[in-house]
Write a protein that binds this DNA or RNA. Structure first.
Lengths: 213, 213
DNA sequence: CGATATACCTACCAACCGTTAGGGAGACTC
DNA sequence: GAGTCTCCCTAACGGTTGGTAGGTATATCG
């Protein structure tokens, strides 16, 4: 017992040091495991025991780092929104000043797709698992989501003013259509087939016409 | 016991006769309950006991009608796809012969939205709950889904040939973008606000330009 | 009237759920 | 070297899950 425990501990310590460049305290490993499970299996299937197994600990040990399962889920979902929020914002900031509203829209689409499809289980979890969260938890997480949607609302306003969106269509419809398209991408996208860049430009072209329209 | 049981039975029989114009054997009531739960609560929360409670029976009685929970789920999901398939097909058939590919696209969007948002818990369940189904079940249900997507593939081809889709965008991207937009509508649509008709025309206009472009 | 079939019930099973209590081993501090 | 802190363990709690066995009331039919 003592020997194998010590061995496991050593192995884990070294693995933790080499594997992830992130901060990887026990808490971070738990969040990573929960994010993966939320993305791929959903809320109910994200059990404390399943999380623990992915981390390599026992279920009870989780409660040394978090007070409850829902506290873990809440952090994952909120971090997921924050990650994509930051990704989109910095993609927009990186654009040259003369970028058109359409350029900005396309950059936002690409950043959102990259974040939710390639970079972050957290973002994907926040998109896919949100619908079936327990009502109370869903309410809590809605705050951060709204803040993210505000970015898109502004993008749509700018695009509309520059004539990229027909005047008789609702800006809400346009925003929700676009967010629907990018959020749903997680349901069909498979890595290594169509590059995300191409998807982003196609989406932008369908919705807003050719560049410099 | 005997009295209350008899009373419950009578009440159920009359309710069954008046409530739903459908066939409503016990099996159908179970499917209806499961469809509602799958749509609003997801797969794992759709427990045999929750289904039974909505029907007004006990959990064990379900197994007189179905061999397992997953058999119920499979039927609901598949019927959901079939319902929207039929809805879209008959909407297309009802169009005048001179309808343009764009008219057909818009009619398909409207029919899909109506089916998934207003008419059918089954359709909505098949869209929302699919992602987190157990892998085996998901594989089984994929067959019917593919058949439905074929409709859209054909619609996109026609639209492309008539010039409604830029030549340098992938038809798959266009199809998946549109399906994403309509499938995601279930996440934000609330009855009694924006009419579905308006959503459909807005979506079509954003994606394919003004009518008779 | 007796036989059969239908549709439900009760009561239970093993497995699993989130969570808790209490303990032990190693590392840091004084 | 004793005390404390961190991190993990075992073992269990009450409750819920999908599913089963066996019984009972009703309706139909010969």
């Amino acid at each position: 017992m003592t020997i194998s425990q010590a061995a496991a501990r050593t192995a884990k310590a070294s693995a933790a040091k080499s594997e992830t460049p992130d901060q990887n305290g026990g808490a971070r490993q738990i969040l990573n495991a929960a994010a993966w499970l939320l993305r791929h299996r959903g809320y109910e299937a994200t059990t404390t025991r399943a999380i623990a197994e992915r981390v390599g600990i026992k279920a009870g040990s989780i409660y040394h780092h978090f007070p409850s399962k829902d506290a873990i889920v809440e952090r994952v979902i909120n971090e997921g929104v924050l990650v994509v929020n930051k990704a989109v914002m910095s993609a927009l900031d990186a654009l040259p000043k003369k970028a058109t509203p359409r350029d900005r829209l396309q950059a936002a689409i690409k950043a959102h797709l990259l974040s939710s499809l390639e970079h972050s289980d957290y973002t994907s979890a926040s998109i896919r698992a949100f619908a079936f969260l327990p009502p109370e938890l869903r309410k809590t997480c809605r705050v951060e989501r709204r803040r993210y949607e505000d970015i898109w609302q502004q993008l749509m306003r700018d695009a509309s003013q520059s004539g990229y969106i027909p005047k008789d269509v609702s800006l809400d419809a346009a925003r929700l259509m676009l967010l629907g398209a990018v959020n749903w991408a997680g349901e069909w996208y498979r890595p290594g087939r169509v590059p995300i860049d191409k998807i982003a430009t196609d989406f932008a072209q369908i919705a807003f016409g050719a560049r410099r329209a």
